[in-house]
Each structure stands twice: as C-alpha cells, then as structure tokens.
Amino acid sequence: MAAAGPVQLLRAAAASSRRWLFSASPAAGTWPGCGSAAAAVRAARPFSLSARAVLSSEDKITVHFINRDGDKLTAKGKPGDSLLDVVVSNNLDIDGFGACEGTLACSTCHLIFEDHIFEKLDAITDEEMDMLDLAYGLTETSRLGCQICLKKSMDNMTVRVPEAVADVRQSVDMSKNS
C-alpha cells in the first residue's frame, strides 16, 4: 500500500496518545489532547523529529483547507506527512475528521482535490476505494486525507472538506435481511 508508512505511524501515535490520556491528571486541563496530540505524533516518530529539526520553513508545504462553512484554514506540513497528519498536528478545526485515526476504517477524512493535483496523486488502492464508497458527497476528485502524502509539488494546493450531506449510502441497510 502506498501509504503504509504514515498509517503505521498514525497507529503508533494513536496508541501513545491513548497512553498519555490515561496517565494524565484530570486537573491538567478540561479537555486534554490538543498540543499533546501533536506531541504524541512527534514522539512516535523520533526519526522524522530529527529530520524536522534540520528542515527550514522553505521545505515545508503549505496546504489550504476549505472547511464546510467556507472558511479557509491554512497549515504547513513536511514532505511525507499525510493530510491527516497536517490536520492533527496543526489542530485544524474540522468536525469529525479522522475518526479511525488513519487506519482506513472510516471515511471521515474525505477531501476533494483540485483536478491538476488529483491527476498526479499516487494510485488508489482497492481498500481506499472501498472506504470512499461510504463517504458523503463523493466527487470525481475525492480521496481520503490519511492516504495522501505531501509532496513538494503540492505546495499551496487547496483541498475542500465535503459537506456532510446524505448520499446513496443512507439507504444502505447494514442489518436488514435482503
């Protein structure tokens, strides 16, 4: 799978974030997580941390997210980061994004790409297609953010968060006899 690396890392990050959650004192904050989430991601990837240290800001890639309400969120990531990494480490406020934490078990990190970027993305796996089938507001240029890794050529690209609208899947009945 093209993005096996980042997925593994995210799993590790999720695990360490969990450990952190349960060891933290409740008094540490009413809602723990934000800054520490990024810290957990970083802690889980010591090698990229050292790489990060030598990266200048020019090596970073800027991504603009058009949120559901039309707001533009701009964040930076480094080559190899997934778009889910970018959202998590920059604490971008996108409702419900990345529910399964990058393990290809949901479609909440669904993003819509510009044509010229979409065409150059790495090939899509069957497993990603399967989850995209369950995404809301699917388009011709839809992908899952957890599967897209940043490249220099993506600098300044704009991705759109689809609106949470009902589509054909609402009629899919998981539990009823067919």
């Binding site: 990050a13 999720a14 974030s17 904050g29 009413t30 809602w31 723990p32 997580g33 934000c34 800054g35 520490s36 989430a37 990024a38 957990a40 991601v41 309400d69 889910l84 959202v87 998590v88 604490n91 971008l92 406020d93 996108i94 409702d95 419900g96 994004f97 990345g98 529910a99 934490e101 990058g102 909440t108």
Partner: peptide, 19 residues
Amino acid sequence: MLGWGQPLSPLTSSLCLPL
C-alpha cells in the same frame, strides 16, 4: 477534528462561531 487532540482550543476559541 476528531482524532486526538483538538478539544481545548476549539472549545474556547470557536465556541461562538457557528451560532
């Protein structure tokens, strides 16, 4: 965002945004 972190700052900073 749903995954890990989020909560505190959006809770305080964006609490009035949608309404």
